[in-house]
Simulated scan of single mutants.
Amino acid sequence: MDNVRLGARAIADSLIEHIRGNSETKYTPIATRETEFKELIVHGEYEDIRVRDLPAEQYGAIKEVDGIHCLVFDTDNIPNEVLIEHKELFLEIHKQKDGFAVGDRGGVAKVMKNPDSDINSIFDQYVDRLPRRFLPVFEDALALRATERIQNLSRGTVYDWRGEIADDHRRRGNDPMEAQHLISLTSTGYFDNGGVFDEMYAELVKKGSRTSKDYSDIIDTYIRKNPFAVFVRSNGMTAEEVCTLTIDKAKRIERYPWSPGFIDICGKGEGTYEIIDQAHVILDNDYDAEMSEYRDPDIEQYILRVSPDTL
């Protein structure tokens, strides 16, 4: 806790320097709220640090959260330059108490979505390609993926975060299942530069005769129907079920515009690996299917790519 308190003090010092460097305030005394914030960090009595919403322009406050006195930050009210400078500390805050508070999801997303983040570059690439209703989900899905790659989020935390994103999509009048599909497709990297959907755009629009509106309609279908990826769950999903889903998708994939020509069986975490391996054996023995494996150890991802023509 002492290290985090020292880090929080560094944030307060950065805020003061930021105000001093601002052309509009460089010749005026430091605003009271910056010095009060530093005093709160240095001398305040708190046992933990959280990210929560506070009134406009209030940097921090001491509040009781789950029966514990916490120093609460609001990342909306802290200048972006300061957030970027201390990104690692803000992420460390979310590791308190051996886990990630789902209520802090917005705070993490704000920190992750800084100008130097891959989130912005990928999001900007698709802002005019995706149907508008998907953009909030896509941005949150990118923030979740970026956070997963930095923190060791528990399976339950990821599940809860995904649920919140899908619930937000539902409250906007949309199907929560399509939000879940989009989160999974984003997590697996299909929207990355050179990924499946980027290649699809290049072939259909840049090199082909389709319009951006055509592409948007096609990607809408791919997100809603999820025709080429089987996402394996470690609980309540069997290898036989995975094979059935894979075969069903293989029979239908050529019906979709610009079929990628494969079915991916995707799993994250050790709980899914055994299921995928078992499915591999079944598809090999029963169909002599043509398959290849891809692994991304940074996010514990395992993909078994199956050729539909061999099923």
Rank of each mutant, 00 (worst) to 15 (best):
K113V: 05
G194P: 00
R132L: 02
K206R: 03
G21Q: 13
G103F: 09
R172K: 12
T147M: 10
R255C: 06
T147G: 04
T238H: 14
K225S: 01
Q96L: 05
I119D: 03
K38M: 14
E164Y: 07
M291L: 05
R305A: 06
T147E: 10
E300D: 11
L91A: 13
Q58I: 14
D48P: 05
A229S: 11
D277Y: 11
L142F: 03
I265S: 06
Q151H: 09
E293V: 09
R133K: 07
I11Y: 05
L83Q: 10
L144Y: 04
A109W: 12
P297W: 03
G267W: 06
E254V: 06
W258L: 10
G60H: 08
P115Y: 07
Y215P: 12
R233T: 04
D248M: 03
G21L: 09
D284L: 07
H86G: 09
D175A: 10
D116E: 15
T75R: 15
G267M: 11
P308R: 00
I78S: 09
V108H: 04
K26G: 02
D2I: 01
K26R: 15
D53A: 10
D298S: 10
D13K: 13
T221E: 07
I19S: 00
Y302D: 04
D104Q: 13
T221F: 01
K95E: 15
A279S: 14
